[in-house]
Design a protein around this nucleic acid. Structure first.
Lengths: 197, 197, 197, 197
DNA sequence: CATGAATGAGTCTTCATTCAT
DNA sequence: AATGAATGAAGACTCATTCAT
């Protein structure tokens, strides 16, 4: 009798393709990652790919949205914490930990190239908004607690915090001795110096 | 008939194409900037383009090399200066000034996505090496002068300085209120905080 | 468990798919009518479709055969009638009545484009043969009765009669003021004029 | 020195592709005529094709427009003629002569299948409008001269005339003994009978 | 030198059809 | 019987690059 979709299997397949996309985008850039390549990586036929994502761009979009959602959840989990400065530190550490996956910096770089596409630009903007919305209250709170400088507005400080994190990810893509593990301590220190009153 | 090969005209044409490439790469990314688009922007025919650059990648390469050479020259000019910390400050200000050209952040982002191509990766690496070679002596000197912290090696500090500059350029591409002019002062402050003993 | 193969249900399902096919072919043409579209229209899954028809072309074939059989039956019913001219008139009216279904002209047009496929060309030829075989005796009989011109052979006259009917259907597809209802009277008149001695 | 396009060569190439398209569309239908096939027929590379026509549909469109323009010119040439009935006869003969090209009926049939596409539907409608606009005045004039029946409006008579011509073309596609040459006389007679007062 | 028409390899994407459940 | 996820062959179209003028 007409067994309809197994939603779990569907979601799993979806994630499997997203993961393959992450790998390929990171390794070859957006345009360099052909759908054929992604399909091979995911171990599926091209038809299957388009069964799950109407467009290559939609795969990238889904990946970005996944990241956005994770950021959202990360901050949702911290809601109500009293120690703002510590939460900020934790987030920085969290980013450094994520950056341990060698695909992350390459992916970030790859995405930068497609900012041209309106939908992707919007997704990136949404991601930024989410991150800013997540960080801003804690920066403000830390300011109130006197733990963070107040000569710059919370909004600008947040921008600079994000700048530092972006720069960190970017530098990792260089592939040299600059690795997430080795430099995460210095990252925390750099943030501290940036925010210090 | 004397075939006049006017080297000046040639060089001018070359720069004109490089400029058009800069514009197009910044606006559409590397793959999005079709040779047709670049030719239109430069006001030349496609045949002419390939007279000057055997390949689209070579245009990008030439652009990168131009930047590398400029960096080289910038530091060559400062050779022998006694005030290391001031030189570093000047370089940071120089980057901020360059970043005033709205194409620069877009171009940087566009290039990041092509790291896949070996020749371009190498050019980027060369650019990095040049910049690092330019900065490192001054960082060291400033350390000796006690103006800069010594808990991190000069090499690592240089990396972090570059990280800050990269992050700055990256944030400018966002297009929001974060503009080179408005934030250059904070950039100098951030560098100061990073390097402070 | 008795596996109940209900032939009635099967035939009904079949007709339902044929009907959906008629609708889709008429609206989107043969190639434009994707199996997915037909399945949606029929309210079935794609798997079911191919249970009933091994191929999309077979659906079209079945539809054509249905029409051929109906034509056959129409003429079988008239067998033995004494008034040939009246039978011809009735058939013309019958076509005009069928053409009231707005899908018919579109379907005819859609089919015309697939004549390329041998099997379908053959089916169309068979349809034609059937129609000709149905009309020819009556044309001949009407000629004998002096009701129809004899300067052209019965075969050719039949061709021209079919030409008029085809043209009529084709014009209906235009969608303008030319509707089957409004023009059926003129159609009868045109046939009369064509056949008049 | 920069010799720009040779417009003659361009137009010739264009016509060559249109001709190849006519051949392929007629033989395989619109969808069956792959761009690859058309290119092979035209003896050009696929890139060249899209140099001249942005889209396969645009080739069809161009072909249709060519026909429309020819119809326009045909009637423009007859402007001012006193003998309306004779002009109509000539046009019918003209269509019959054109239909001698065995590709014409197939092409007409092929086009029918794509009426789905708005741009093509519009082009077909424009073609119809042009033909109607060409015929209508002569039908009216012939009515005034008492050479043509007046129980139907000139507009409807024109529709019926076009119906006859369409039916004629359609029947030719059958490929049987019904050929343009053999039947053109009967066509003229049929028209006469249709229009006779 | 400059041009732009011509090229064809390479992409994304569609869709009829199969098959395990 | 019915389903719809999976498949991959095939097609339209793009674009860097070449070359005759």
């Amino acid at each position: 009798m007409a067994r309809t979709v197994d939603p779990e299997k569907h979601a799993a397949r979806r994630l499997q393709i997203i993961d393959a996309g992450l790998t390929c985008f990171a390794a070859h850039g957006y345009d360099g990652a052909t759908t054929a390549l992604i399909c091979r990586e995911a171990g599926i036929g091209s038809g299957t790919f388009f069964h799950y994502f109407p467009t290559k761009a939609d795969l990238l979009l889904a990946t970005l949205e996944l990241g956005t959602r994770e950021t959202e959840e990360w901050f949702a989990t911290r809601k109500g914490r009293p120690d703002a400065a510590e939460v900020l530190r934790e987030y920085v550490a969290h980013v450094a930990a994520d950056a341990t996956d060698p695909r992350v910096p390459g992916f970030v770089r790859a995405v930068g190239a497609v900012m041209t596409e309106p939908r992707i630009a919007e997704a990136l903007a949404a991601d930024e908004r989410t991150l800013r919305a997540g960080l801003l209250p804690w920066v403000r709170k830390a300011q109130s607690a006197g733990r963070v400088r107040t000569d710059l507005s919370a909004a600008r400080l947040t921008d600079w915090l994000m700048l530092l994190l972006d720069g960190f990810l970017g530098r990792l893509a260089g592939g040299d001795a600059f690795t997430a593990k080795r430099e995460s301590r210095t990252l925390l220190d750099a943030v501290e110096r940036l925010l210090a009153p």
